[in-house]
Each structure stands twice: as structure tokens, then as C-alpha cells.
Amino acid sequence: MSEELKRRVYEILEPSTVKDPASKAYDFLMTLAVIVGLIPMMLKHENSFVIWIDVLTSLLFMIDYGFRLYTADYKMGYKSYKAYFAYVVSPMAIFDLLSIIPVVSVFWKISSAFTLLRLFRVFRVVKLVRYSKSMVIISNVLRKVRKQIGAVFVLVIVYIFISAMLMFQLEPSLFDTFFDALYWATISITTIGYGDIYPVTLLGRIITMISALVGLAVIALPTGIITASYMAEITKKKSKYEL
């Protein structure tokens, strides 16, 4: 009986693939809880509605985490206590746990330094990956190209540091700290160019021009990699249905 109940709980928790009304209702509830749970982050003033949203959504996510832990052996695919440990350290379980952390600020009055815990609410968006087929496709795509994206990211970071160091030495009057130079390099290479920090010397301007041109090439690389992988994923799904 307990095993039958556990199996049923697992079926409800997993995104519905057959016409199971309980599973569909649960998917809808959790999706709504994630979206409504993010509303407090869009508001400047706290009111009683915000407090109740925090309480209700945190409770829902705690219950969801508890049930997912209870059915971890079904999720991981093997009956063993190791399945529970494996589930706890899996990426989605970690995001689920991080999204519960804001409950601490709801039930215990804590100092303003720890209100940063409320920022963990943003991790709740990751939960939507479970319930949206589009986000499943995107997460599959990103997982497949993570090494290539990682390599480009390292290249970008190295270039940002090099141009920041060069500008920091060439035009020290522009920057209060090295962090300002990093900020300038990032804004230049991404071609955003706020204009709050701008070079005045000839060499500084040459480096800025090179940064902008390098940025065009480097920033476009991840777009090409992700697009190619996305097209391959879509084509794969299409041919699977055609077969």
C-alpha cells in the first residue's frame, strides 16, 4: 500500500505526460507558485499580501521538496539509500533547496545583512524547467554545448582582464579602482558602451576600438554555437516523430 502510494506521489510530481488530472493540476499549481513567488521581487514596498505570498509559496516548495526526497528512489531509478543521497546532490534538487532558503527570512526576523537570502527566490525560476517543454529543450541544448561555451567564456574573461590592466596603466585617472577598469572593459567588449567612463588619450582610444571589434567577434561566438546546437536538437526531435 505504501509502495503504491509512493508510486502515485511520484507520478503526480513528475511533469504529466498522459492525461492524469492530478499530475496536470499539480504542474499548474507549482508553475503558478513559481510565478507568483517572484512577484515580491518586483515590488518596492512590503505589504501583507507579500508576506502571505512568501509564506504560502515557501510552504508549497518545502512540501514539494519533501515529497521529491520521499520518491527519490523512483526518480533515480534504483531502490537503495544511495538513491536519496544521489538525489540530494543532483542539480535540480540543489536549486529546489536554494529556492526554499527565503523561508528563513519569513519565519525568523533577521538582520538586514541576511535579507540577501530573499534574493534566492530567483532560483525558483529554474523549477519551471521541469514543467515547460521549451525550457527542457533549451536546457538540453545548453548542457550539450557547455564545454564550447565555457571555452568562449574563459577567452572573454582573459580578454577583459588584459584590456582592463592595459587601460588601468595607460589612463589611471579614469578609474578609482581596478574594479572600475574591469567594469569599463566589460561594457566595451559587450559593445554596450554606457559612456560613463571613456578614454581621452590616443592609446586609450585605440585600445577601446580594438575592444569593440574583438567584442563583436567574441560575443557572437556563443550565439552561433547555441543556435547550431538548438537547430540540431529541433531536427532530432522532428525526425523522432517522423519515424
Binding site: A22, L29, I39, F49, V50, L56
Partner: peptide, 23 residues
């Protein structure tokens, strides 16, 4: 179970709308 999910969903929608309107 579906009824409970619907009730909680309605409560969430009301709370969300209330928070936005209050803001």
C-alpha cells in the same frame, strides 16, 4: 487532490493580484 490544487491556485492568484494592486 485536484480540488485542493485549484483552491490553492485561486488563493495564489488573489494574493498576487492583491500585491500588485497594492503596489
Amino acid at each position: 487532490f485536484v480540488f485542493i490544487c485549484i483552491v490553492i491556485s485561486i488563493i495564489l492568484i488573489v494574493l498576487g493580484a492583491g500585491a500588485l494592486i497594492t503596489e
